[in-house]
C-alpha cells in the first residue's frame, strides 16, 4: 500500500526544503551546509526506496494525509482505551462483598458427643469451609479446609486417619495439618478448638 501512496504523495513532499532530507543522511553530519542539493538526493532517493523516504523524513514535513492517518489512529486508540477502562472496572467486583461472613471469628460446631473419637466434621467458618477432627486419643484439632493445592475442600478420612483431598489425592496430618502426601505444597492453616459448655467451639488462631 505504501508504495503506491508514497509515489502519489511525492509531489507534495518535493517542494519541502532539502534540510529535512539532509538531516538524516550521513555525509551531512547534522549541518545544513551539506554539499548541495544533488548529494542529498543521491543519499535519499525517493524513487529507489519510497518506504524509507516516507518513514524517515516524512515526519519532519508531515503531509496532510499522513497527519490525518496518525490522528485517526490515535483517536481510535484513545476511544478504545476510554471505552475499555470502565468496562474492566465494571467487571471487577468491589472487594470484600461478603464482609459480614469474613468478620466471623468463632463458630459453635456441634456437641462434643456428636463427634466421636476417630472422626471428623466439615463445617462453615464464616467465609470459608473448615474441618474439625477428634483423633484416636480424644484430642480435638481444627483447620481451614481449603486444600493448599488447588483449593478443593478437604475432609477427614477415618479409614486413613488423615485429612484427605479428593481432587488430586493430597493428604495432611490430622493433628498438625502438615502436608504429607500428594501435590499440596503447604500445610493447612490451623484454627483453635475449645470445649465450651459441652460444645465444640472453633475460633481463629
Amino acid at each position: 500500500m505504501s508504495d503506491k501512496e508514497s509515489s502519489e504523495d511525492k509531489p507534495v513532499a518535493e517542494p519541502a526544503p532539502p534540510v529535512g532530507l539532509c538531516g538524516k543522511s550521513e555525509p551531512c553530519s547534522g549541518s545544513n551546509s551539506c554539499g548541495g542539493k544533488s548529494s542529498c538526493t543521491e543519499h535519499v532517493d525517493p524513487d529507489a526506496d519510497p518506504a524509507a523516504y516516507l518513514d524517515d523524513d516524512y515526519d519532519e514535513v508531515l503531509s496532510r494525509s499522513d497527519f490525518m492517518r496518525k490522528a485517526f489512529g490515535g483517536t481510535v486508540l484513545l476511544w478504545g482505551g476510554v471505552a475499555l477502562a470502565p468496562i474492566v472496572a465494571y467487571l471487577t467486583p468491589p472487594p470484600g462483598e461478603d464482609k459480614e461472613a469474613a468478620k466471623v471469628t468463632s463458630v459453635e460446631v456441634c456437641k462434643v458427643s456428636e463427634l466421636p473419637k476417630g472422626t471428623g466434621k466439615n463445617f462453615r467458618f464464616g467465609s470459608f469451609p473448615a474441618v474439625v477432627i477428634n483423633d484416636m486419643e480424644g484430642q480435638l484439632h481444627a483447620f481451614n479446609a481449603i486444600c493448599t493445592h488447588l483449593g478443593c475442600t478437604v475432609q477427614f478420612r477415618a479409614d486413613k486417619q488423615c485429612i484427605y483431598c479428593a481432587c488430586h489425592g493430597g493428604e495432611y496430618d490430622a493433628s498438625t495439618g502438615k502436608n504429607i502426601a500428594g501435590p499440596p505444597p503447604k500445610p493447612l492453616p490451623v484454627l483453635k478448638v475449645a470445649i465450651v459448655d459441652d460444645k465444640i467451639v472453633v475460633s481463629k488462631a
Binding site: N122, F123, P129, Q155, A166, C167, G169, P183, P185
Partner: peptide
C-alpha cells in the same frame, strides 16, 4: 460450597489428561 469434595471426583473426560498430568507433578 462448604462441604468436602466428594471422594472419586473427576473432571469431564476432555479435561482428564491435563488433570492426570497435574496429579503427577510434585509440589
Amino acid at each position: 460450597p462448604f462441604a468436602a469434595a466428594p471422594i472419586g471426583i473427576k473432571p469431564e473426560w476432555y479435561f482428564l489428561a491435563p488433570f492426570q498430568f497435574l496429579k503427577l507433578i510434585p509440589p
